[in-house]
């Protein structure tokens, strides 16, 4: 017996044996355990409260809707949008200094997803480039959610593109299970967090064009203002109700 153990010990020293036992146990048990967890804690989709098609009837303090335009040739991701709940609207910034429509308009793109197996929607920094847009910069800006007491200041992702001889700024955020995210991967992490039984996420995106470098700031401001104002009806009337979000952002959700 001792000799046998010695032989085993020679062929499989203790660290190797320990590694083998751990790997064997993992190979036998881990896949089925993960499968069980996946089924046991499977997340369910949740319906949007009101279809985003109704968003065109929403009023904003600083913007008026304008008839559908060419959306500044925004690729708009429609072929790969992977949801039926989306809308693209164009607005006119009421207090813009310029009288030319191109210096006043902002595009609002909204989409809603609720399939737990979704890998999170396409993002403009990757997709718009494939439509001939040149991405010059990625940065972050803060957005104070419009006009509410104790409303949060959230971070949004700002993209600087060049397209058809003009500059384009794109500002977007994700809202998922009552939280705001500027980063797709962070939101994917959040979606996976155990605890929530349902899962949803929405993307709120604003796009504005500018033709002179000095007009960029005004374009960013238009995007920021529309994003700040659009968040309010979106979370209050469209996205699913969430008790915890209400505690987290009193007055907003």
């Amino acid at each position: 017996m001792t000799r046998r153990l010695e032989t085993v010990g020679r062929y499989f020293p203790v660290p190797v044996l320990a590694a083998g036992i751990v790997l064997l146990a993992a190979s036998l048990g881990l896949p089925s355990m993960l499968n069980w967890l996946d089924i046991r804690f499977e997340k369910k989709p949740i319906e949007i409260r009101k279809t985003l098609m109704n968003f065109e009837f929403e009023n904003f303090a600083s913007f008026s809707p304008v008839p559908q335009t060419d959306h500044f040739n925004v690729p708009a991701e429609v072929p790969g949008i992977e949801t039926d709940e989306w809308i693209h609207l164009t607005y006119d910034f009421n207090t813009a200094a310029s009288t030319r429509p191109r210096d006043r308009q902002v595009l609002l793109l909204l989409s809603y997803y609720s399939d737990p197996r979704d890998k999170v929607s396409h993002t403009p920094e990757v997709c718009y480039r494939q439509a001939g847009w040149t991405l010059n910069d990625i940065s972050a800006v803060t957005v104070a959610v419009g006009g509410l007491t104790g409303a949060p200041v959230i971070q949004a992702r700002l993209l600087d593109f060049e397209h058809d001889g003009s500059g384009v700024v794109v500002l977007y955020i994700f809202v998922s299970n009552g939280r705001f995210y500027a980063d797709r991967e962070r939101m994917r992490l959040a979606i996976g967090m155990p605890g929530d039984r349902h899962v949803y996420y929405a993307k709120i995106e604003t796009v504005a064009r500018f033709f002179k470098p000095q007009d960029r700031e005004a374009a960013v401001e238009r995007c920021r203002r529309l994003l700040a104002e659009a968040i309010v009806p979106m979370v209050q009337r469209y996205l699913p109700e969430d008790e915890r979000a209400r505690d987290r952002y009193p007055g907003l959700f």
Binding site: V22, L23, L30, L34, D38, F41, M193, P194
Partner: peptide
Amino acid sequence: GVAFILLGLLMYAMLSWP
């Protein structure tokens, strides 16, 4: 080595579920 293997398994498990 066992610690590394456990780390790899933890990574594998966490990135499978949740």
